[in-house]
Every structure is written in C-alpha cells, then in structure tokens.
Write a protein that binds this DNA or RNA. Sequence first.
DNA 1: TGGATTTGACCAAT
DNA 2: ATTGGTCAAATCCA
Length: 323
Amino acid sequence: MNSSWHENLPSSRKKAMDELLRGQESAAQLKLVINQSIGFDESMFVEDLVKKVMNSFSSVLYILNGGESDEVASQIPLVGSPCWDDRKTSKDSGESTGKSAAELKVKDRRGCYKRRKSVHSRTYDSSTLTDDGHAWRKYGQKVILNAKYPRNYFRCTHKYDQQCQATKQVQKIQEEPQLFRTTYYGHHTCKNLLKASQFVSDPSDHDSSILISFNDSTGEHQVSKKPDNSLLATYQTVKQECCNREDSMSMPSYDPATYYNNQGSSSDYLLSPADHDYMSRFDSGDVISGVNSSCTTSSHSLDVDGIMIESGDFDDGVFGFDL
DNA sequence: TGGATTTGACCAAT
DNA sequence: ATTGGTCAAATCCA
C-alpha cells in the first residue's frame, strides 16, 4: 500500500473521494456523539444506521478507487496459475507427465506465494489466546531473526473447501512474554456462520477497555485490551494452538478478535466499554455482527478494508471509526 | 482412519 | 546470502 493511488487520480474523482472521506469522518464523529447521549438500546439501532452509512461511503470510495485492493488481489491466486489451489490436480498432472513427483512439486510451488509487505494487516495484542470466531489451522512455525519466540502461522480451515484466504500470525511479544501478538491478513470469505451464535462476550468485560494503536505509515492498527482479563464463555474453533513448550507459545484459548476495520491518526484511542461492545459486535462483520454482512466476499467487509488500508495515506484523523 | 500439527525444505523478496 | 512465508511429508491424536 502506498500513497500513489490517491495522488494519481483525476482531480474530479479525487475531489469526490475527498468529499466522501469527509462525509465518512462526519458519520464517525456523529456515532461517537450519539453514543454519549442516548441509551444502549437506541445506541444499537443508531450504530447500525451509522454503520450502513459508513459502509456506503466506503463502498463508493472503493468503487472510485477501482474496486480493487492490494490485499485481496495479492492473496487470491489466479485461476490457472501454479498457485491456484488444487493440489490434487497438480499432483495428478505430475504423474501423467512422467517426471518425478518431487521435481514437479517443486516446480508447481514456484511463485505460489509472496511476502507480505504492502498487504494490510490488523494486529491485536492479548494476554489470552481465545477464540476469534473462526476455525484456524496451523501450517507453519518459524524462528524469527532477533526474536526470542517463534512465529506461528495459521490459515483458515476453509482455505481449500471455500477458498478462504484469511491467515494470521501469532507470536509472543519479546518485551512482554505474557502477551501474544496476533496479526490477521486477508478476510474470511468462508461461510462460517456456525460461530456467530457462539460469539458471546463476557459481561464482566465491561469494566475493561481497549487500547487501539494507529500507525500511519504502515496502515496498521492494534487493539489491546487493558486490562486483559476477559475470557469468552465459549471457545471452540482453534484446533491446536496450544502447546507447553517453553520456547513456543502457550495458547490455552483464543480471544475473539476485537480488532476491527479502523483507521485514523497515529493516536491511541482509549475506548469506553460501550465502544468495546460496539467493536465486539461489528468486528469481522462476518461472524459477529450479523447486521448486514455475512462472511463472504461481498461488498462491505472487503471494501471497507480496501479503503481503510489506503486511507492511512491521508491526513491524520481523516477517519474516525470505520464500521 | 481422517483431520490436525510438526517441521524441514522450498522459494521470493530483500 | 539471508530471511520470512508457505508447502507438504511425517507424525500425532481423538
């Protein structure tokens, strides 16, 4: 992600996008004002409306921007390319050509992945590893240079049956070994609706707050709970992210990711419990909100992130909360 | 026995 | 040449 997309646009389109961004910002501010002035029930209704408004902004921005995001484009293999994931097919074709399976395997894998650099990510720190509502499968662990703890790689369980491209990395934070840093890449395009009903936040958690860190240069943000003493009532999806080895991770359970599509200035926002609720409900729209998006590639979840990735290149604070 | 994890190897980016 | 992300065979486990 870089700043060129915005600079290179025709001036009329750029103006339109700037205007939309202002409208989006205003909607975000409106939400905050409303949250402070009305009751919980009304708040939920209003938040829903604001979310729809902001999604509309995001969708239009997305369309004006060409309807494509680096993230999505870079992570979905092209049909017919070596990465197009039908490993059975590639194996079968390998046998039919007479070349050794090993040789072909190596060739088939060429160019099948790229390093993440410009890809948007959401980083979330937590002292507990609890369920984020999705089924993950570990596919790798790597010792990282100058890092005391290894990095663990997870992909969505439905990568192959539903072509879901979501992945995440989990690593103990060296400075704070009691904390885990989870970085999410891509979006779930799987229909994993079973999880939604099980996604219940702990009422006791209302006393806690969340610290979100925005990083303008990278487009990243972090959401950390402080204090992190919450555990969800139900955890069920992470298959085996727990082990007892000292040099690895201790992952008793998984926290529902309270990361969410957000972007703004390089400031830290200390959210109120109400905001936490809000985030819990709308995060990952797919499984949590159930308001207007499902866990599909359609529209908003993707669009929003696509836009928000790039919005970091705008002036600080252009975006408040992206819903 | 099928699905999940482990772990060494492969490969692209730097 | 080094490093990080991914693959896939071997292994584990319910």
